[in-house]
Amino acid sequence: MKNGWTNFVIGTVRIRIVGKGIERFLNNCVRQQIMISNVHKVDGQLATATILLKDVKKIRILIRNADCKIYFIRGRGFPFLTKRVIKNSGFALGFLSFFIILGLLSNMVWKVEISGAEPQTEHQMTKQLAKIGVKRGEFQFLLESPEKIQRYLTDNMNNITWVGVEVRGTSYHFQVVEKNEPKSQQKTPYQHLIAKKKAIITNLFVEKGQPLVKVNDFVNEGEVLVSGIIGNEKNKKVVAAKGKVYGETWYKSEVEVPLKTDFQVLTGNGYTKHYLDFQAFKMPLWAFNKEKYASKVTEKVEHPLYFFKWKLPLSYEKVAVREEQNSQRVYSKQEAVEKALEIGRKKLLSTLGEDAKIKGEKVLHQEQDNGKVRLSIHYQVIENIANTQPIIQGD
């Protein structure tokens, strides 16, 4: 019994042998190849020894023909340890459950704190955070990373300039910088409406003031369209000219579109893996997918785990793998021209006012070179060309 580790797994039993035939009993054990060790003879009719648990049945048979009796003192090894654990399973399970529940509670969101925001903005942010699960009672390792939460808030809230996200144990802290809307400058109560660019007048809607132009007139930049001075020389009155003056303006745009474009697209196939990261190694939890993709996009999100306020040397990691493939978009020359016209229109409208519209467009120049179609486009636009100019003393 020199192999202590093997004996621990199998299990050993310490026995007491009482009677006159102790030597004969021990010799019979050796003949039956029963491993017996640590034999200690107390006197002529008493001895102790150690046997393997698996040989207990053989010992019971041999003792029937021996002039002695055996008594089991104690058992050692894995079988007896397992039996004791099962016997005390309630305590063991309770102890284990306590630490599991305590660990889960240490990784839940217990507080969401927002500072630097007005009450209305704070309420709006709280609703946005709840949509992505950032609220009390949610597990931290199921939430997005602080960087993604920050990006989500800045993309979905127009009244904030910047938001900082910090995780402190079981609390999420948000530091907000709101947009400072510039205070409307104190406008003079008296003003003209002037042209902000060259145009041909197409329509006028004057609420206050004296129109100085009419439809089809050509005006230059800075020319007065509606005067804030009304009446005659003897009875003048100064008001704040108000209204809209629409004119036809002109723009030129250069647009190019490649005939062939290579890009990557997601196929929709993919899987997600979950790990417990122990720094030295990663233990997969579920989703043991071994599918191989020729080209893929991998996104990792890691959440550290805490026990109370202490950060543990392990973390939960979520890995999303998505298959992608190469794709090529090919335009004919006519399709490329149509696409260029569409791009040009969108680009121009993005720089104009809300009520502006494109009246007409004309391709001034078109060429195809190095796999690209280039267009030079002239646009006719109808837009409000009126701008305000204060009436100063002496006008």
Rank of each mutant, 00 (worst) to 15 (best):
M1I: 07
I17W: 01
I17N: 02
V18I: 12
G19N: 04
L26F: 15
N28D: 13
C29N: 10
V30M: 08
V42T: 08
Q45R: 12
L46G: 00
A47R: 03
T48N: 03
A49I: 02
T50E: 12
I51L: 06
K54W: 04
K58C: 09
K58H: 13
D67S: 12
R74P: 01
G77R: 05
F80Y: 15
L81I: 06
R84A: 08
I86T: 04
S89H: 08
S89C: 08
F95A: 14
N107K: 04
M108D: 01
W110P: 06
K111Y: 08
V112E: 00
V112Q: 01
I114Y: 07
H123P: 03
G137D: 02
G137Q: 05
E138Q: 15
E144M: 11
I149L: 05
R151K: 13
L153S: 05
D155C: 03
N158C: 00
I160C: 12
R168E: 06
T170Q: 14
N180P: 00
Q186V: 08
T188H: 12
Q191H: 13
A195K: 02
K197F: 05
I200F: 14
V206K: 15
Q210E: 14
K214M: 11
V219W: 09
E223R: 02
L225Y: 11
S227R: 00
N232Q: 03
E233R: 13
V239R: 09
A240I: 00
K242M: 09
K244D: 00
K244I: 00
V245T: 00
G247T: 07
G247S: 07
E248V: 09
E254M: 10
V255L: 11
L259M: 13
K260H: 11
K260R: 13
Q264E: 08
V265D: 06
N269G: 03
T272C: 06
H274K: 13
F278S: 09
Q279I: 05
F281M: 08
K282T: 07
L285P: 05
A287E: 10
F288W: 11
K292Y: 10
K296Q: 15
H303E: 01
L305F: 14
K311L: 07
E317P: 08
E323T: 02
Y331Q: 03
K333C: 01
V337Y: 10
E338P: 03
E342Y: 14
K347A: 14
A356M: 04
V363M: 08
V363C: 09
H365W: 09
Q366Y: 06
Q366A: 05
Q368T: 11
D369C: 10
V373K: 08
Y379H: 10
I385V: 13
A386H: 07
N387Y: 06
T388N: 05
I392N: 06
